[in-house]
Amino acid sequence: MSELESASTLENNLNSVEEAHPTTDFVIQFWGVRGSIPSPGSETVRYGGNTSCVEMRIGGKRLIFDGGTGLRVLGKSLLSEMPVEAYMFFTHSHWDHIQGFPFFVPAFAKGNCFHIYGAIAPNGASMKQRLHDQMLHPNFPVPMQVMQSDLKFYDLFPGDTMQLGDITIETGSLNHPNSAMGYRLTWQGRTAVYATDTEHFGDRLDENLLHLARNADVLIYDACYTDEEYHDPKSSKKGWGHSTWQEGVKMAKAAGVKKLVVFHHDPSHSDDFLDKVQSQVETVFPNCVLAREGMILPVI
């Protein structure tokens, strides 16, 4: 499929959902849905190859979760709306969740303001330090100080609850190497949970995530693998920090989740492979959707 056809597919995805719910005050838009490494190419056109970046527009505020390469695409879309104020929340600083930040064009423009939140890393590094360090030589030619927008940094700790106007944001620890943090957003009785880069426990449900996802309208869940891949005796994925769609269904059912979003697709999973996953998930949890770039999901 050509780049022009790919752009047309993305535009159709956006338009079809926007027309269905044109006035919703709580919407989720997916700008990057892939895990580990960007995977562009003819086999990933329909679901997308950019790494993690999810935008939530809630009651007039713009919240951005993670800064993978999808953040670059979001940034381009914001150029027509400047000046921009947004709130950015990072789950952790593995490369696929921060690699879009140096290419986030609105951050380089005066008049924009970004409130940036993240947990302290196990080694004591703040999110500000980690974003700063990835833009230092020899890794990157332009330091973060070149960004002319107003960047405000805040430290969060798992278990913290904060208010952003009338939006309640709860946080919780996720089971991931070097730690990660999940987020629960509640506004006017509606709730969405962003829980990516988390690995299930073999003998029990993760109590932190179960609490975070309780009775949520939408749960965005890291289902990088299938059970078959995770337990493959020749190439097991145990300990890699990611989960499966089967475990996502278990969590969604136990937590009373209304809609499950399968997220953080493995870079080796083609569009055809993910189509099969969609069909399989629907047989056991009908109100489930696989995340696609450009998809807009109303929280209703």
Rank of each mutant, 00 (worst) to 15 (best):
G48P: 00
Q163K: 14
S77A: 14
A7I: 11
N12L: 12
N15Q: 13
D133H: 14
R214K: 15
C53W: 01
E229G: 01
G159D: 05
A223S: 14
A125H: 06
F157N: 15
E229Y: 05
Q280F: 00
H242A: 01
F273L: 01
V289E: 12
D272K: 05
N215R: 15
K253A: 12
T168L: 12
G111I: 06
F153H: 03
L63M: 05
D166T: 08
N215H: 15
H242W: 03
A107I: 02
R72L: 15
A223G: 14
G48S: 02
I169T: 01
F30D: 11
R184N: 12
S235I: 10
L74T: 06
H242E: 04
T244A: 04
T283R: 07
G172K: 02
G118L: 11
V146M: 14
M1L: 07
D25K: 07
L174R: 09
M251E: 07
F263H: 15
R57Q: 14
E43D: 05
D150A: 11
G60P: 06
T186I: 12
G41S: 10
V261H: 01
D150H: 15
G202F: 11
V33I: 09
D197G: 13
L79P: 03
A86L: 02
L151C: 07
S2P: 00
A223F: 03
E199A: 02
G49Y: 08
F30I: 14
F26W: 03
L74N: 09
A86P: 06
T44H: 03
L210I: 10
Y230Q: 02
T226C: 05
L210Q: 10
F30E: 11
S80I: 03
R130I: 04
G100K: 10
K259M: 02
L79R: 06
S173Q: 13
G165W: 02
A223H: 02
W95V: 11
M135K: 04
E282P: 06
E43P: 03
Q188G: 05
K76Q: 14
P177E: 04
A119M: 12
D66R: 10
N287M: 04
I64R: 01
V146H: 14
P38N: 13
L151R: 09
N12F: 10
P138M: 08
E18V: 15
G256H: 05
D160Y: 00
A7N: 13
A119G: 12
P102D: 07
N13W: 11
N208P: 02
W31T: 09
F101G: 08
P106A: 08
R62G: 06
V261W: 08
M56T: 06
P138K: 03
S6M: 00
T244F: 08
R214F: 14
S268C: 12
L210M: 11
E228T: 09
M295S: 03
R57S: 13
T51H: 07
E85L: 09
E207A: 14
T186R: 14
L209H: 11
I64T: 06
S279Y: 11
N13G: 03
Y117C: 10
V262I: 15
A20Y: 01
D271W: 01
G118I: 07
